[in-house]
């Protein structure tokens, strides 16, 4: 499959003329005109092309358009169908809007249904995310920094254990964690969702790499000579240097907590403690089965409302996570 496309890269890249919006017919230009096209740029116009060597390709753009359609289609479907009431959901095509625009009516219904339980779920999720993901990031940052910048007895075994933990399926531990928490009286409390969310071995590992790469040991030495305490050096100097890494780890912890389904499913019994995904599933169950209520349109609108905050967070912070991920993956 990859060979296929790279062949395209080889042929189309050389046949389309540089930097221009090549039309499909443009890919059939002859070798002569191609050579002419390449040399034919007057010296004064070279600044119009940011990079002379890049030849934009129609074929590759088409490949990516297919990928983009695949990735965005379900989201498009969700947006379109959250504007329909129950009746037109069943009667109209899923790919286009119905006769009436019911989005705001649907949102109103979602927010007020059953005394506003959705709002409750939303606030619960915020609590889980702020305390769980925030705490996970704090612990990972402190720990990763300690591992990267200091040597202490037992450091090697910590390394081995954490790396091993990354490979352990989290769900394999879920049932025993439930039993353990249940004997401690912690199940069906917010803590039962928050405590396990506090530990992210992968986040720990990432922060360790970030700390290693972004905080020069000389800076720490200089701070020590100046008489700064270790914790002050950390809080004032190191944290700032690790900021892009911290945002990356935070963002991934936020996504993991926002989307967490399995753990709350096991731990929580009361609907009033549910996070959004569990609430969505509860409504979905209500909409299916023998005594189904006609609320599919609300499940769809509620799904949209669940996705929006996390998508906005991703879009607005993309500068951070894109750089952050690359730092992590180079090492991995």
């Amino acid at each position: 499959m990859s060979g296929d496309v790279s062949t395209h890269a080889g042929t189309t890249a050389s046949t389309t003329s540089a930097g221009t919006l090549a039309s499909p017919s443009g890919t059939r230009t002859t070798g002569a005109s191609r050579a002419k096209g390449r040399q034919g740029v007057a010296p004064g116009y070279e600044h119009l092309r940011p990079d002379r060597h890049i030849h934009r390709s129609v074929a590759l753009t088409v490949v990516m358009i297919f990928f983009a359609i695949y990735c965005l289609l379900p989201l498009y479907w969700l947006v379109v169908n959250s504007t329909k009431d129950y009746g037109s959901l069943l009667s109209s095509s899923g790919l286009w809007f119905g006769d009436s625009f019911q989005l705001f009516a649907n949102i109103g219904e979602v927010l007020t249904r059953k005394d506003g339980i959705f709002v409750r779920w939303f606030l619960n999720t915020i609590i889980y995310v702020v305390v769980g993901a925030g705490g996970a990031t704090l612990l990972a940052t402190l720990g990763g920094y300690g591992m990267a910048k200091f040597s202490f007895p037992g450091k090697k075994s910590v390394f081995a254990v954490i790396l091993g933990a990354i490979a352990i399926p989290g769900t394999a531990l879920a049932v025993p964690t439930f039993l353990m928490f249940s004997s401690l009286g912690l199940t069906n409390t917010m803590l039962s969702v928050i405590i396990p969310a506090l530990v992210s071995p992968f986040g720990f590992y990432l922060m360790w790499i970030f700390a290693q790469e972004s905080v020069p040991t000389e800076v720490l030495e200089a701070a020590r000579v100046d008489g700064s305490s270790e914790i002050r050096t950390f809080a004032t100097i190191s944290v700032r240097m690790m900021a892009p890494g911290i945002v990356t780890v935070l963002l991934f912890a936020v996504v993991a907590t926002w989307n967490n389904y399995f753990l709350p499913l096991i731990m929580l019994r009361s609907e009033s403690l549910y996070p959004l995904p569990l609430g969505l599933q509860a409504w979905n169950l209500e909409a299916t089965g023998v005594q189904a209520s006609p609320i599919y349109h609300l499940v769809i609108t509620a799904s949209l409302l669940t996705i929006i905050p996390i998508v906005v967070a991703f879009l607005s912070l993309q500068r951070f996570w894109q750089n952050g991920l690359s730092a992590g993956s180079v090492k991995a």
Partner: peptide, 9 residues
């Protein structure tokens, strides 16, 4: 983007 979508959704 799909990575950010909860598995339930």
């Amino acid at each position: 983007l799909p990575y950010a979508v909860p598995s339930v959704a």
